[in-house]
Design a protein around this nucleic acid. Sequence first.
DNA 1: CAGTGAGCAGCAATCGATTACAGCAGGAAG
DNA 2: CTTCCTGCTGTAATCGATTGCTGCTCACTG
Lengths: 342, 342
Amino acid sequence: MARIVDVARRAGVSTATVSRALNGKNVRPELAAAVRDAVAELGYSPDRTARSLRRRHSEVIALVLPDVENPFFTAVARGVEDVALEAGLSVVLCNTDDRADKEERYLAVVHDEKMAGVLLAPATSTPSIDKLVGHGRSVVVFDRRVTHAVDQVTFDNRSLGYRAARALADRGFRRIACITGPAATSTAVDRADGWRDALRDAGLAADDDLLVHANFRVDGGYEALGVLLDRSPTADAVLATNNLAGVGVLRALADRYGRPLPSPGAGAGGKVTGPELGVGVVGDLPFATSRTSDVTLVPLSPRSLGVTAARLLLGRIAGDDAPARHIVQEIEDATVSARTAR
Amino acid sequence: MARIVDVARRAGVSTATVSRALNGKNVRPELAAAVRDAVAELGYSPDRTARSLRRRHSEVIALVLPDVENPFFTAVARGVEDVALEAGLSVVLCNTDDRADKEERYLAVVHDEKMAGVLLAPATSTPSIDKLVGHGRSVVVFDRRVTHAVDQVTFDNRSLGYRAARALADRGFRRIACITGPAATSTAVDRADGWRDALRDAGLAADDDLLVHANFRVDGGYEALGVLLDRSPTADAVLATNNLAGVGVLRALADRYGRPLPSPGAGAGGKVTGPELGVGVVGDLPFATSRTSDVTLVPLSPRSLGVTAARLLLGRIAGDDAPARHIVQEIEDATVSARTAR
DNA sequence: CAGTGAGCAGCAATCGATTACAGCAGGAAG
DNA sequence: CTTCCTGCTGTAATCGATTGCTGCTCACTG
């Protein structure tokens, strides 16, 4: 494999000049051209390992996720990856299963590998990033809030919950339940808060027994629906504050009643009887196998979230040292996609 | 940050001894203990960049995928990640969008970053891996076949297609169509071949107009169903040879007819009339929002595929230089999960 | 014409770990 | 007692690119 000395010899210059020519420093044009030719002839590409050693950081960033199998996070990964590729960075994917120990382990790897930065969707509200930040590594937290003074990119989760609940109320539902995630997850809490506010504003009750905490996975939503129907049989709609919980709710309803979702007050349309439940979901259902036009969806834009977070990180890596920012990611499509009540 | 010389000084030995102690070479036990203590006291962890430079390869492997947003591949990623973490390797995720140019670019990065190896689900049947293999980099191709003499891990795709089609035939369907992927994708071709064989064996016609080529995404399946119904209105079942195509088919049916799937020969049960179509899918539907008990599913085990491929790669990285192998990944759960015909 | 400064190129140090080689101690064999 | 061998340990070279420092050239100024 060609090394920098080979290029230097062939171009008749020193390795220092080759390095500078390749890195856009000031070099006399004719020498730069000679270097370019030599590089082309030898098919040289710099050894990134050596470069990283000397520069003291690599051209790799880590994307630390609670769950790579969640389509929300894979869409985030897409956005991150596009931005990173553009900038010549590689993305290392790390899956924490929402466990603090795995997260910590990966953050240690980020450190040892001298990665340029980390994009972190934290498993807890107090991730172990102090050491990284202390060593000047760039860190951007996204999706969920943390207490540290680091860059953060989140949605306006309270507003998302509010809009979803409000849309259900506008469709005519009167007892709107909420299935949300663990109390330790800021998105779960914030969206539930929005749900509560919307119900108050609509003059509806937001009783405690209308709120169910589950995990933010399909099984969580599935089981939570059962819990909810037992506890609050009078509920006429349910809001799932996360995409997978929403999938679980929809599947549970399909398994129980096997028919399309109702409008408020409509009689039982199909042959199977059961409660008339309206469904709202904060998030997207890219792999839904049923019609979703009856579901009150508040779509997110996970890809944009990834793009925003990645751009912010790139800026930091490039040397931006302004105080930590908290960016609220706008939703591209602000409309709630569901038929309005007839 | 503590370096190896700091550890050496503190333990009263040379850096060589520290290195050997840490890498399991022969070192007098009391010195090894001293090193261990010094490492613990200083919180030392070796700089992987320097190690990679010297060892001439890093502790990172690349996972090159056609589509990170496909749950099949994210499940593969999970399997790979678990094995890699266990072995102290990091996984870089690369998304090619099934494009040869992006794939080539990522394979170049694999080379320049001196990554230990690459797991590749190739975009074409002739990926640019010769240079990597030539430089002694370990390569394992999975999911799709290639013509190179490299390690490969695939399912028995013909058998998968066969079993799915056979199960539909056993349920009583007589004109079973097939929606498969691009003709350039080996999985698409092999599974369609299996479908054809099953129909022949069952004494059914496998006319050309029952086979539709689409892309292996949701929109592909969705549109293909329309094409199919136009072209072959007499079809009474359809087999989607891939998970996302299956999602597309199911959603298209839900949008058109808005009701659960029928058994063969049953009258129109719901209020909307339309063709009575049985559905089979090769793959899993982890995010289905409808009941899937009427769908003839041939589940795969993408996670195991990832585990197998990763283990094979680790073996190669560790120095296994046996001739290239082609492993056929067994399906864990060989049963076709669908109600049998009533 | 001497002095000053800008611009550029090269030498050599540097990043931090691994490892070839040489040296040394202690035991076995002759 | 000498020789040889085995088994550790330490010194220093090494991986390959980047960059601080020095010094040269050339243009411009006074």
